[in-house]
């Protein structure tokens, strides 16, 4: 039977092709900027996890006799701040706060925003209007102002920072997801699934959401960068994590009073924010290109 042989051959070439097919990771690595971003993010995560091993001093031990030292003086890699705390160690520990807030707040916003967005887009009608007008209301506040308001209401603390930035992230996700769902729900395979008697829940979570995932992932990546900046901004304004805990924003805030005496404090904490946010954005750009089939060259 030649047709069966031909079919067998097709199956075989398919399997070969699958092996050769460029994985998402490879596509990402090909993009140099994205690769750079990925490496920095990777290093950052390592730093955050192994902070106690990497830090050269305790980040919170004060020694006023050694305040405001310059770079490399007396074994302090990046000098000390106005209380004599090691800036390098504080920045190392600060990466934990930035990452935790960045990721947790975005997860919070993504989960709630996606659920709202998917409900609005999938069911449409009045539910859509109610949810989206509420989201528009939230959108009308400038992002940072909304976070500040929420922080004032909730009070300081790491969890509250996460909740505040998370809530500020909700409308963005709701909008992105709704837009995506509106497109996907018209696909023929959704109609097929309906014609097979599937429930709404099954259609939403098994068919609509997985097919809307790519833009959500990209938007989430970019949002992590935004959330890190927001955390820094809140800490800078004194609304973030409690003072002794090192955060890039609070180091920057302390540093702004000593810009002339010791610019290291502000410079290095600011640089950390800059590099981190830049890397995440570069990575996010690369991810979008890699995930978007229309960008295939």
């Amino acid at each position: 039977m030649t047709s069966i042989q031909a079919e067998e051959e097709i199956v075989k070439t398919m399997e070969d092709k699958r092996k050769k097919e460029q994985s998402l990771f490879r596509k990402l690595i090909k993009n140099r900027l994205a690769a750079f971003g990925l490496i920095v993010i990777f290093l950052l995560i390592i730093t955050a996890i192994f902070a106690p091993l990497i830090a050269t001093h305790d980040p919170n031990t004060m020694d006023v006799t050694k305040a405001l030292l310059g770079v490399g003086e007396q074994g302090y890699l990046l000098g000390t701040d106005n209380f004599g705390r090691d800036i390098f160690s504080r920045i190392v520990y600060g990466s934990r706060i930035s990452l935790i807030v960045g990721i947790a707040a975005v997860l919070f916003g993504a989960v709630i925003g996606s659920l709202l967005g998917v409900a609005a887009g999938y069911f449409g009608g009045k539910l859509d209007s109610v949810i989206m007008r509420f989201m528009d209301g939230l959108f009308a506040f400038p992002f940072i102002l909304l976070a500040i308001t929420l922080m004032t209401v909730l009070g300081q603390g790491l969890i509250n920072v996460i909740i505040a930035i998370g809530i500020a992230n909700v409308p963005g996700f709701a909008r992105v997801v709704r837009g995506q769902v509106l497109g996907v729900k018209e696909s023929e395979f959704i109609e097929v699934t309906r014609s097979l008697g599937a429930k709404h829940r099954r259609i939403i979570f098994q068919h609509v959401l997985p097919n809307s995932l790519a833009p959500i992932i990209v938007y989430a990546t970019m949002s992590v960068a935004g959330a890190i900046i927001s955390e820094a901004a809140l800490s800078f304004l004194g609304l973030g994590v409690q003072p002794p805990t090192a955060s890039w924003g609070s180091i920057l805030k302390d540093g702004k009073d000593f810009l002339v005496l010791n610019p290291n404090m502000a410079t290095f904490s600011g640089l950390s924010i800059l590099i981190t946010v830049l890397s995440i954005n570069l990575f996010g750009d690369g991810l979008r290109d890699a995930l978007d089939p229309k960008m295939k060259v």
Partner: peptide
């Protein structure tokens, strides 16, 4: 359905 290329979830 009519179009098998879009009837299956990719």
């Amino acid at each position: 359905f009519q179009d098998p290329s879009t009837s299956l979830n990719p």
